[in-house]
């Protein structure tokens, strides 16, 4: 990692929305390499709109937005952001194997006329290994459980070898046992230095993975700090809880991460 590398994501009083309706207003935020940010907030607080704004799926209505130091409007290297959308089920209109879905992740990296080569297939193997689905690569995705399908989508994003993973509610609608497996996958990725921006309203499952918490309400950021400070000062949006804000302070990486990460996964190919 170069010193003085620009932040992966940087927003300065940025606004996003749809058809001139501002859903996210005046958000200032920046994510550095290696950070795993949980983006919390109640429904309708603008978390998803913000994430979609970074991907060009919602409109950028004001303020400054830069990705890897390039202003959003001039940013074209889109596969550098690995998007894991919120999906309750993968399309079952036709048969598709786990591997076929993950292979989609490689497509934006090569011109339309070039077929997949050995590198593509090796990276797909690696992505399947990272989410623990290599042994199910030939299964029909529609036959998998919700949590397994979420891992397929994470593998699809990883196949593009992104510099940051952006996930929308990866644990929503997933049972506890599968949430644990998902959290393990994310912890392993974090230990490999993968930067992540995770929209979620279930912090519990990801507590040991995140290094920083950003909380949104009504289209604004109302907390930005370490998980420890969040615990102390921000009673969050639980019903009846007051809105005390702890001072955003030093980032303390949670304990327990090292304990979870026992897998020896192939190292992610270095991106220059």
């Amino acid at each position: 990692m170069r010193v003085n590398a620009p932040p992966l994501i940087s927003l300065h009083s940025a606004s996003f929305g749809y058809a001139e309706r501002r859903v996210v207003d005046g958000v200032t935020l920046s994510q550095g390499p290696g950070e795993v940010i949980a983006l919390l907030g109640p429904n309708g607080s603008g978390k998803t709109t913000l994430v979609k704004g970074l991907l060009g799926l919602s409109e950028h209505l004001g303020g400054e937005v830069a990705l890897f130091g390039t202003p959003l409007e001039q940013f074209h290297d889109k596969p550098r952001i690995g998007y894991v959308p919120q999906r309750h089920s993968l399309s079952a209109s036709v048969r598709a194997t786990v591997r076929e879905i993950v292979e989609i992740g490689r497509l934006p990296l090569r011109p339309w006329w070039r077929p997949a080569n050995a590198t593509d297939s090796a990276v797909v193997d690696e992505a399947l290994d990272a989410v623990g689905l290599r042994d199910r690569e030939r299964e029909d995705v529609a036959a998998l459980s919700g949590g397994q399908q979420r891992r397929v989508l994470i593998a699809r994003a990883l196949a593009a070898q992104p510099d940051v993973l952006v996930m929308d509610e990866p644990t929503a609608g997933v049972d506890i046992a599968n949430q644990r497996i998902l959290a393990q996958v994310l912890a392993t990725l974090a230990a490999r230095g993968t930067s992540m921006l995770i929209v979620t309203h279930e912090l519990a499952a990801l507590r040991d993975v995140v290094t920083r918490i950003v909380c949104m309400d009504g289209g604004h950021v109302d907390f930005d700090g370490s998980p420890a400070d969040y615990q102390l000062g921000h009673r969050g949006h639980e019903p009846g809880g007051g809105h005390h804000h702890g001072s955003p302070g030093s980032v303390g990486r949670s304990d327990g991460l090292a304990a979870i990460v026992t897998d020896t996964l192939p190292s992610r190919e270095a991106q220059s």
Partner: peptide
């Protein structure tokens, strides 16, 4: 035949395809 993977990707998840710049 040449475009089959891309047609498959776009039909499978249009939003994702747009997000990665297809």
């Amino acid at each position: 035949w040449v475009l089959r993977h891309r047609f498959f990707a776009v039909a499978n998840d249009e939003e994702y395809a747009r997000a990665v710049g297809l």
